[in-house]
Design a protein around this nucleic acid. Structure first.
Lengths: 164, 164
DNA sequence: AGTACTCGGATATCCTGTGTCCGAGTCAAG
DNA sequence: CTTGACTCGGACACAGGATATCCGAGTACT
């Protein structure tokens, strides 16, 4: 039971992207978080494939959120990066072995799969209830209202006069 | 986001162990489910280390449930096999980079970690609400009241007169 | 038109499961 | 009491996927 590490990066990127208007290159996002640019690029590609962010190429290219922050759930991001397949996969071992249940009796999935599926649904529901906008609002409450805009300004700063 | 495959095996073993009185060797459980005996042994060792099953050695040895089925939750089994560490681990990347939040301001964990933690808690709560006894009852409802006792009898059958 | 910067996918590397094996210990039988 | 055989337990290879990286295709600015 382990979640891909890139999920954290992708979530942070989505939050900071709420504070910008112009596209932000993956390399700049990597510089902000001090992580490997190549690997973060991979995560952004996943977000792009899922349609969560729009990618624009060229000299002033980068990534922008496609939808409004209130319309992107945490679950969307997690599934885009980590995949949508459920954590538990039933192998139907009840049908195997000498006393295996005959297939015609297996109309519904076994109780174990049902319970695990319910837990998975609860997890997904909890993630679906939170949006990127909620996260941004929480950051505002934790670090003050000027924190996020400051990061946004830094991300969109002209390459000519960057302090770093 | 992937759950160890051995979790399914361990759960099925716990359920069938509710139907027996004498210890059952790992090899016999493997034969029942038609899976690798060596690997299933590994899972049973994990259950033993967690104190969920009691292991007895010697010629008539094997595994028995330590507690009553109503007192063993699904979460106990999952954590025993797959580990108790949460799926999401916060790397505190908000403290890194040029605009990193100073450590003295990080009194509470970041909003992302909170949301992921809440989802993890929901998942665990859902698993903790189901016991092995509940699963056994569901099997009874699905496959009839005689299914589980039949398996129990097969598991405890004397090695001399085993049909298989 | 040239140029420099961007994304995108194809490519190595490492690490956590996955699967297997043999030895220490123990109980039952003779 | 001796013998024997069967059990668990931990130590040992193997593999697949996540991690990390690089270079080519395309595009907007100069």
């Amino acid at each position: 039971m382990k979640l891909s590490g890139g999920v954290e990066w992708a979530l942070h990127c989505c939050v900071v992207l709420t504070a910008v208007g112009d596209p932000v290159p993956a390399a700049r996002l990597a510089a902000l978080h001090d992580v490997s640019p190549s690997y973060l690029a991979k995560q952004m590609q996943a977000l792009s494939r899922a349609g969560l962010v729009h990618s624009v190429q060229g000299k002033t290219g980068g990534y922008v959120l496609t939808r409004k922050p209130e319309e992107v759930s945490l679950l969307d991001v997690v599934q885009a990066v980590d995949g949508a397949s459920p954590a538990f996969v039933c192998t139907e071992i009840r049908q195997r072995g000498p006393l295996g249940t005959p297939p015609e009796q297996c109309t519904k999935q076994c109780p174990i799969a049902r319970a695990m599926g319910a837990a998975d649904a609860a997890w997904r529901a909890s993630l679906a209830a939170v949006t990127i906008a909620d996260l941004a609002a929480s950051v505002e409450g934790d670090s003050g209202p000027e924190a996020l805009p400051r990061i946004g300004a830094w991300l969109n700063a002209d390459p000519g006069d960057r302090p770093y």
